[in-house]
Design a binder for these strands. Structure first.
Lengths: 137, 137
DNA sequence: CTGACTGCAAACGTTTTGCACGGTA
DNA sequence: TACCGTGCAAAACGTTTGCAGTCAG
């Protein structure tokens, strides 16, 4: 289990047990909704406050330690900030996978077509994951 | 000004003045946040209720008459449902442009790489619009 | 004329805030 | 020890609901 103490300090955040637990949950689960995170935190800290969760999520968002992923037809989930990637959302089991895609060409042609300067791209593909695709027959 | 009465009826929604006004605002503005919509509605219906706005937005979302666009770093906006397209969001003036891009290739290669069945794609490019790009020098 | 829609007020769920206490560095 | 962080309670928001009156079809 990776130790995130120094990573937190590098973002000027104290390494409290609650924070380390939040990060570990994100690390293990990949993508977690707030209510899911709260539920998991409750099993580790029986008196954890929702306010603490919110405060930490917001602090870690501000310092870009984590990122919010807005799901088109669902609730936001949070993930540790990692290298640029896109998401696949299963509309049946609501699982989320990371995927790396090359948008270079599209961004270039879009930029030149519109004169818009593109700094970042958010891409979410929705459909059925491998498992649910099979089940749907 | 296009008349949306029949379009509403086709979705089993009565063509009330409030609804027609909402639709016209979306039509004229392209993309509108809830608070912006409420403000604009207030100037036409001095006693419009926020509840009415919400009820109508939700009904029109359910019938796919309109769609929600979740903006990565901002509030959701609503738009009339039109042919498939993506969005360019200016992080300086917060304007939103529609754009059509071809994702065929990327979807195909992503599908075969992951075994994920892709049914739809949500793409938002963020950056600077033509106007703000010039101002930023 | 009847069911659907509106506006109001209240309820609800989610997120934020203030404060006293406790823990990290 | 000095802040920063936590937990609690209350407040602030955003959204939904119930209801009585009104309107579109």
């Amino acid at each position: 289990m990776k130790n995130y103490t120094n990573a937190l300090r590098a973002h000027n955040l104290k390494a409290t047990p609650q924070r380390l637990a939040i990060i570990n949950i994100l690390d293990l689960n990949g993508h977690v909704s707030l209510e899911n995170l709260y539920t998991q935190m409750l099993s580790k800290f029986h008196s954890i406050s929702l306010a603490t969760i919110y405060k930490n999520i917001n602090l870690m968002l501000e310092s870009s330690f984590i990122q919010e992923v807005k799901i088109p037809q669902g609730k936001s989930v949070y993930e540790l900030t990692k290298s640029k990637h896109s998401h696949l959302v299963c509309e049946s089991c609501f699982s989320i996978e990371d995927i790396t895609i090359d948008l270079e060409e599209i961004q270039k042609s879009t930029s030149s077509k519109t004169q818009f300067q593109i700094d970042s791209a958010t891409v979410v593909f929705s459909g059925l994951c491998e498992h649910c695709k099979k089940k749907s027959f």
